Simulated assay, not measured.
Amino acid sequence: MKRRNFIQKSSAAAALLTVGGLGLESFAKKTSKQITILHTNDTHSHIEPFDINHHNYPNMGGVARRATLVENIRKENPNTLLLDAGDIFQGTPYFNYYGGEIEFKLMSMLKYDAATIGNHDFDNGIDGLYAQLPNAKFDFVSSNYNFKNTVLDTHVKPYKIFNKSDIKIGVFGIGIELKGLVDNKLYKETKYLNPVEIAQDMSRILKEDEQCDLIICLSHLGYHYTEKHSKIDDLTLASKTKNIDLIIGGHTHTFLPKPTVTKNSAGENVLVNQVGCYGLNVGRVDFHFDSDKNITSKGKSIIV
Rank of each mutant, 00 (worst) to 15 (best):
Y112K: 02
N146G: 10
I117K: 02
A85L: 05
Y159A: 12
F95S: 11
L110E: 05
I102F: 06
P93T: 09
Y98H: 14
N77I: 13
T80S: 12
S142M: 14
S142N: 15
S108N: 13
G86D: 06
G118A: 03
D121L: 08
N144I: 10
D113P: 02
G91E: 09
P93F: 09
P134R: 06
M109E: 13
E76Y: 11
Q132R: 14
T154K: 15
G86M: 05
G118W: 12
M109H: 04
E103V: 10
Y159R: 13
G118T: 06
S142F: 02
F122A: 06
D139N: 10
I73R: 05
N72P: 01
A136L: 08
L82F: 11
F147Q: 12
L129G: 14
V151N: 09
N119M: 10
F95R: 06
F122H: 10
F162A: 03
K157C: 03
Y97M: 03
K111C: 09
D87V: 00
Y112H: 01
D123K: 12
L110N: 01
T150S: 12
I73Y: 02
K160Y: 05
G99Y: 06
N79K: 04
V156C: 04
K75D: 10
L110G: 00
R74C: 03
L133V: 14
T116V: 01
I161M: 10
G86C: 10
Y94I: 09
I117S: 04
M107W: 07
N146M: 05
N124H: 14
N124P: 13
F140G: 05
A131T: 05
Q132M: 15
D123V: 07
K137D: 07
D113A: 05
V156G: 07
I88P: 02
D153N: 15
S108H: 13
K105P: 00
Y112N: 00
T116H: 01
K75T: 05
A115T: 12
G100C: 12
K160R: 14
G125L: 07
D84N: 15
L81H: 00
F95K: 09
K164P: 02
N119G: 08
Q90A: 08
P78Y: 11
I73E: 07
D139Q: 12
D153L: 10
D123P: 06
F147Y: 14
T92E: 07
G100P: 09
L152V: 12
L152D: 15
N96Y: 12
I161L: 11
R74F: 06
H120F: 08
I88N: 02
R74D: 04
T80L: 03
T80V: 04
T154Y: 14
D127W: 04
N144S: 11
F138C: 04
N72D: 13
A131R: 15
A85V: 05
D153C: 12
M109N: 08
